[in-house]
Design a protein around this nucleic acid. Structure first.
Lengths: 141, 141
DNA sequence: ATGGGTGCAAAGTGTTTGCAAGTAT
DNA sequence: ATACTTGCAAACACTTTGCACCCAT
């Protein structure tokens, strides 16, 4: 097994995820880092995000719009605005008993589950409401 | 709004999702279709999958390894093997009350949530177990 | 001094799109 | 006849990788 070195770039990537705390994408992290370390490359950011994920120092979250990175390592759920992409942690406890129950019922060795709630954030909801009022006739479903 | 035509290709894409029922990726659908309609193009498969998704005829599921398509339209959860990628429906009911609860607690208009359980399917679990026992990967069916 | 890490650019993936020809209505 | 759809290839967006140089140990 390879012995990892501690480099300035790796620390910067880690620090950025911890500092932003907004579930940034790899590219958002890269763009942020360029303001601090102009010569850093995308490849380095990606490589370090993958290493940090393997090390369990940051968490990788697959989202419908993009892959994002989470500073919080304890298992939790997310809530995403389908309009603007904003993503926050959901104030609901992780239900580990579901993993146990499914293991029993299906024969899979269930290790975890991910839940993403989708909807409109307050800002996007009111924006949509306003534009509906004075523009389009309401859509029935 | 555009009027959609019914084309041979569109029907073939729909029929393939319904027939496979294994949560195939766009490329798996394309490869399957080529055996039936050799001149079909990837672009057509992607375009039709997107249209069918908008029409509510198939369901699009974002997965950590790839985007997959689901024949079943009712909301439900999935269970994925992290080893071989196999994906089945989870035998757990959709908990709509969570959407309502989060709407109340967060101010988001929560419309839905997706849950993906991850673990090892029985085959991959026993393969891993055996290889631990005797250091040789078993020849499973 | 070693060998992991970096910057850069090229190469991979997976998906979308412009265009001319084809076809459902 | 009209205009939506297709096949093809080029274009895209995102991520990984080969390489020569750099630097933490």
């Amino acid at each position: 097994m390879k012995r990892q070195r501690s480099t300035k770039q790796r620390k910067l990537v880690y620090d950025t995820v911890q500092a932003l705390r907004n579930h940034p994408t790899a590219d958002e992290i890269y763009l942020h880092l360029r303001t601090v370390e102009p010569k850093i490359s995308r490849g380095t950011v990606y490589r370090n995000l993958n290493l940090l994920t393997e090390n369990g120092e940051v968490r990788h979250v697959t989202m419908p719009d993009a892959d994002r990175f989470d500073w919080r390592m304890e298992r939790h759920y997310h809530l995403r605005c389908t309009e603007c992409g904003a993503m926050i942690d959901a104030p609901i406890a992780y239900r580990a008993e579901l993993d146990a129950q499914l293991s029993k019922d299906t024969g899979f060795q269930v290790q975890r589950h991910m839940t993403v709630f989708e909807g409109l954030c307050p800002q996007c909801a009111s924006a949509r409401q306003t534009s509906q009022d004075d523009a389009h006739p309401p859509e029935q479903d």
